[in-house]
Design a protein around this nucleic acid. Structure first.
Length: 281
DNA sequence: ATTAATGTTCAGAA
DNA sequence: TTTCTGAACATTAA
């Protein structure tokens, strides 16, 4: 579930570790199976000890810790991964602890309730070749209107499906795609190559508004309560959801339409048929 | 007790 | 080249 706003919140929350030296990496026991680590992690883990954290950054939906020797600790939270400064809420599943020699906090944790996330330690070269192999699109938070149109409009795919394609644009997941399309008044099934210029403008504006507001409110904590910020506090954007997870309810914007759930690319899409008519306006 | 749903990425096929 | 399908992951709600 962590999408751009949640991952951005994690990065901001642990920003204070930048400059700290990692004294050791501890993989704590978990109830079932270990988190999915790169196969060579145990060997490379020793490399981490003693290195200073140069920067904490976000790459799409991933957290990237840049270390002083150029190594990157790349964390992909997938469904239930979290970066925490506070102690993890339970002993279940993966806990990766980086002990810090300096700074205000002694440890930073990666905790993953279901263990679906991926943690990789990459050398500078491996990181570069990963970037070459896995070209992410421009970040959704900073993409320009022209770039959005240029990258998405040639496709015949439904706009909802294209928004989820990280090579086209990086950071958007299922939840925010639904909210963005609703705010823009665009039907999720509308083919990209059939959006009118004014719809692209609306989409670009909605993209910025929704993501910025979601970051301001520290992301969305759904009913399962898994997602938390670095200090273990819930996000608050879920109170602003207008369509996501609200099938059958009246649309809070127009108060006329009933939110519909449909399946696209094996994912749930939610939209209001009144606010989001199919077609060019 | 079984099944479906959940979000994301990736391998492989059309 | 582009687009689609299915698998994998762990857990829980139905």
């Amino acid at each position: 579930m962590p999408e751009l706003p949640e991952v951005e919140t994690m990065c901001r929350g642990i920003q204070c570790i930048a400059g700290s030296r990692i004294t050791r990496v501890v993989l704590l026991p978990c109830t079932r199976r270990p988190i999915r680590l790169a196969p060579h992690f145990p060997m490379l883990a020793r490399r981490v000890a003693g290195q200073r954290v140069v920067s904490v950054g976000r790459l799409g939906k991933r957290v990237v810790l840049e270390l002083e020797r150029g190594d990157r600790l790349m964390i992909e939270p997938r469904m239930t991964g979290l970066m925490l400064l506070a102690d993890p809420p339970s002993h279940e599943h993966l806990r990766l602890r980086l002990d810090l020699a300096s700074g205000r906090v002694p440890h930073v944790w990666y905790w993953d309730r279901r263990g679906l996330g991926v943690v990789q330690l990459l050398s500078a070269r491996a990181f570069q070749s990963w970037l070459d192999r896995q070209p992410l699109g421009p970040d959704a938070l900073t993409i320009s209107s022209a770039e959005l149109v240029q990258r998405l409009s040639p496709s015949r795919r439904p706009i909802k499906v294209a928004l989820l394609d990280q090579r086209a644009i990086a950071g958007i997941g299922n939840l925010y795609a639904a909210e963005i399309l609703h705010r823009a008044g665009v039907h999720p099934a509308q083919p990209c190559d059939q959006l009118a210029p004014r719809q692209w403008d609306a989409l670009h504006a909605a993209l910025r508004q929704v993501l910025r507001e979601a970051i301001r409110l520290e992301g969305s904590t759904l009913s399962d309560g898994t997602y938390r910020n670095a200090l273990s506090r819930s996000g608050r954007y879920q109170t602003r959801h207008r369509v996501y997870g609200r099938a059958g309810q009246r649309c809070p914007t127009c108060r006329k339409g009933e939110i519909v759930r449909m399946v696209q690319a094996q994912r749930s899409s939610f939209f209001c048929p009144v606010c989001q008519p199919l077609g060019r306006d």
